[in-house]
Nucleic acid binder design. Structure first.
Lengths: 142, 142
DNA sequence: TATTGTTATACTCTATAACTATA
DNA sequence: TATAGTTATAGAGTATAACAATA
């Protein structure tokens, strides 16, 4: 019986999250999703192309192109590794930081508007839920 | 002060939902996202290609191709409208229903496993949150 | 030999424009 | 003329395979 309830919740929660993600994705402009994601990754800490390809579950060839484009746009820089001449460490430029911030602001706008229309009690529930969802994903190997 | 809190919640909730959506999307196989979505739309009620294009915010040309592929795979059928010979109403076939169910089962698996690891209290919060999130999206014109 | 990264080529999903058929 | 749908063609993002440079 509890199993049936959990299956139903799994479905409803999955669908709800996917709808929200879809809505929000429309709001960010000027930076395609695959470019945005890489900037966000590199912001946390400088990475190599191979590391990024693994993290994003994308081929090394695709990541190579993505990284070249970001560099051409002036959003990242690549500096040769001191001891291993094969790799280059990718970091955000100032323009990259600004682009990331602006895009996040756009993405957040839709959600902020919706939250403003919620009751304080609803917002409290959503706040707790966000923390739980975060833990659900971070429990992963990845 | 409440505004700051709401902005922070907007960010956290958005990121949490996007992470979940991303995780789940990896789990469904055999049916690309754009095909899955159309089957789900048509399941609710038979639709025309033009209606589906509008609902999915995609061009009529793209929808035309998508629909042709689904028909070739035997997942939908198209029957001419009785009074308007220009349009054809798209419906799920038996195979379409089965494909949809199987794909949903795959998508739900990851979420079900995570929920099983949550406490009953956490599941209660998530259940409430799912309902609120659902209302947030459905409040839209679309 | 193994690994990091790039280039060559092709496939998929998307779009705009031009077209056919029906209203 | 207007609308529903299709086909022609092109662009963006991805993949596999072949390659270059370094370990």
């Amino acid at each position: 019986m509890a199993r049936v309830t959990q299956a139903k919740l799994a479905y409803e929660l999955r669908v709800a999250c996917m709808r929200i993600a879809r809505k929000v994705r429309y709001e960010g402009s000027g930076l395609a999703p695959h470019l945005f994601t890489i900037l966000a990754q590199v912001e946390k800490q400088p990475r190599t192309a191979t590391e990024l390809a693994a993290a994003e579950q994308v081929s090394a060839a695709s990541m190579s192109r993505t990284v070249v484009e970001l560099e051409q746009r002036g959003l990242i820089t690549r500096v040769r590794h001191e001891s291993d001449g094969r790799t280059r460490l990718i970091s955000l430029t100032g323009a990259g930081h600004r682009e990331l911030a602006e895009n996040r602001r756009q993405r957040d706008t839709w959600m902020r508007d919706r939250l403003a229309a919620c009751s304080p009690a609803e917002r409290a529930v959503l706040s707790e839920a966000a923390a739980i969802l975060d833990r659900m994903v971070c429990g992963d190997a990845r």
